[in-house]
């Protein structure tokens, strides 16, 4: 049983990862290439199942809130009823059904768009109350940010055309080179973690036991 619980998931990861990496070296169709394609297509199907896990988790969390009558538990009914009814509608009638699309366009889309847009107000408040040029780093960040903001829009060009030129220079030279350095550093990190998973040394993604 311990082999099934602990070792099998690790070994499956090692085999799958190794075959996917090896397939990179075989340009013509081979057994390894074909197997790697199968594994990737299986992974896509497994990801479809994983999408449903989120819904289950939301139902579990809000179901517990209702059961335990936690704070604002009445609103959890809104989540549970909304989720269940929309899910049933989608599964039975399909995504392209008129009612499903109507709810998507007139409920989900405005809710999602507005929730994301509210960030702009918090950002504006943060710019006023929290962004302080306390030291050289902060001052440089703010100066760069202000120039990029003004250089990106028409009003900046109208005030002084130089803003646009400097903004383009900032994006192409300091930003691009510093971001390239960060991307290379991040790539080394990704390589390290991926190698650990493919070699079976990483167990964090499987949860503790």
């Amino acid at each position: 049983m311990k082999i099934l619980r602990a070792s099998l998931p690790i070994w499956l990861g090692v085999i799958a990862g190794t075959i996917v990496i090896l397939a990179l070296f075989f340009k013509q169709p081979t057994g390894i290439g074909t197997t790697a394609n199968w594994f990737m297509q299986w992974n896509v199907i497994l990801a479809s199942f994983a999408l449903t896990l989120g819904a289950g988790n939301v139902l579990r969390v809000h179901g517990n809130r209702i059961r335990l009558k936690s704070s604002n538990w009445g609103y959890s009914w809104v989540t549970v009823i909304g989720l269940t009814s929309y899910l049933l509608l989608g599964v039975i009638a399909g995504r392209t059904n008129t009612a499903y699309s109507w709810v998507f366009d007139n409920a989900y889309t405005p809710l999602s768009a507005t929730v994301f847009s509210i960030n702009a107000f918090y950002l504006s408040s943060a710019c006023y109350r929290a962004f302080r040029a306390r030291n050289g780093h902060a001052a440089l960040l703010l100066i760069s940010g202000v120039i990029v903001m003004l250089g990106s829009v028409g009003i900046g060009y109208a005030i002084w055309p130089g803003f646009t030129e400097i903004k383009t220079w900032i994006m192409n030279i300091p930003n691009s080179s510093a971001m390239r350095g960060m991307n290379i550093g991040a790539a080394l990190g990704i390589m390290g973690v991926s190698l650990r998973v493919v070699m079976g040394l990483e167990r964090g993604h499987l949860g503790g036991e």
Partner: peptide
């Protein structure tokens, strides 16, 4: 909007 944000940064500082 950008001009307002730049103003808030300057004013805040």
């Amino acid at each position: 909007g950008h001009l307002w944000v730049v103003f808030t940064i300057l004013m805040g500082n």
